[in-house]
């Protein structure tokens, strides 16, 4: 594969992960919420958009009954909205809980959602892959088509344009009165409460907004890879995004994007080392071990991350 093609693919994945990290940063960096359910929001966005834009297959082995043929834009918007709603629902059960408990409840909720996706084959094709998800403008974008660039270039630009818009949106939100209340909540629940703010509502909104952008990421992902299955949405995705946000610097949206890009780069680039290198078979696992090691090292030597702010280090501690 030519280097440029490789970089484009890695770049697209990095863009999707950056969106996930931006959402996570609203939860953790801005509001101090230990959300371990992010993979579920990603999945909800992906599956919603896929189901709404893909009619069910009609072969003998087809298990899915539900399917539509809406335009991709509808799918993406619906995916974003539904993910946000799911975020709020999960948050309702857990935002009043302290940090560690919030983490466990969100983690379990996410696994439950993944189980539902895995089992309800009539809706989601269950354990098999949901295939033939349409790619936006695929007819028009190709070397000979109306927009004469390769599809990957188009998608790269699309994803990163969306990342750019979200980055601007979220940083503005962070500096707005809404954002300031979130930061106050992050430091200590009691102060905003004493000032008369409905802390629970703010937490729910924060959860919902972060989840919605994760849903958008999911939709974009689904329409790029055009086939999804429940295995792609394991909790390890959530943990990778966590690693990204921490390494990049919690509290900083630029850090979130940087961290996500670093993690994706680390993982994808080692994919292309030739297979006859010693431990070639285990490279996939060694890559993930590396991520774990980098996370621990960053936490030790530079806990505020690459672009973070040392003050925000104290954020989110429940004591």
């Amino acid at each position: 594969m030519a280097l440029v093609d490789l970089l484009l693919v890695v770049g697209i994945i990095a863009g999707v992960y950056s969106l996930l990290a931006i959402g996570m940063n609203m939860h953790w960096g801005d509001t101090g919420l230990l959300n371990f359910a992010h993979a579920a929001f990603f999945a909800v966005g992906a599956y919603t958009s896929a189901i709404l834009t893909t009619p069910p297959a009609t072969g003998d082995l087809a298990t899915r009954v539900v399917g539509f043929d809406f335009p991709i834009l509808v799918g993406l918007l619906a995916g974003t909205a539904l993910a946000g709603l799911v975020g709020v629902l999960i948050a309702i059960t857990s935002v009043r809980l302290e940090g560690d408990y919030l983490a466990m409840v969100t983690l379990s909720s996410a696994e439950l959602i993944r189980l539902m996706i895995h089992n309800e084959a009539w809706l989601t094709t269950g354990a098999q892959t949901l295939k033939n998800i349409p790619r936006p403008l695929s007819g028009m974008v190709s070397s000979g088509g109306t927009i004469p660039v390769s599809y990957d270039v188009f998608y790269f630009v699309l994803v990163w344009a969306i990342v750019g818009v979200c980055y601007l949106l979220f940083t503005r939100l962070s500096h707005s009165p809404f954002g300031r209340v979130l930061h106050a909540i992050r430091e200590n629940d009691d102060v905003p409460l004493a000032l008369g703010k409905n802390v629970t509502t703010f937490k729910l909104k924060s959860f919902g907004i972060g989840a919605a952008v994760a849903g958008l990421a999911g939709g974009l992902w689904a329409h790029y890879v055009y086939a999804i299955s429940s295995i792609m949405f394991l909790p390890s995705i959530t943990f990778l995004i966590w690693a990204a946000v921490i390494i990049g610097g919690a509290g900083s949206y630029a850090g979130a994007v940087l961290g996500a890009s670093v993690i994706v780069f680390l993982r994808q680039i080692t994919r292309f080392i030739p297979g006859d290198v010693p431990f070639g078979d285990q490279l996939a696992y060694i890559r993930l071990m590396l991520v774990g090691a980098v996370l621990i090292l960053v936490l030790y030597y530079r806990p505020e991350g690459l672009l973070g702010d040392a003050e925000r280090l104290q954020a989110g501690t429940s004591e």
């Binding site: 230990l34 940090g99 560690d100 983490a103 390890s236 943990f239 966590w242 690693a243 921490i246 431990f279 285990q282 996939a284 696992y285 060694i286 993930l288 071990m289 991520v291 774990g292 090691a293 980098v294 996370l295 621990i296 936490l299 030790y300 806990p303 104290q314 989110g316 501690t317 429940s318 004591e319």
Partner: peptide, 28 residues
């Protein structure tokens, strides 16, 4: 041990990193 003085949340995240390492070591 190196994180003994840090907050429980930091330790939680460190344990996540360690979990990654162990699990993928097993896979490897």
């Amino acid at each position: 041990q190196h994180f003994r003085s840090r907050s429980p949340i930091t330790l939680l995240i460190v344990s996540i990193g360690l979990a990654f390492i162990i699990r993928n070591f097993i896979r490897a």
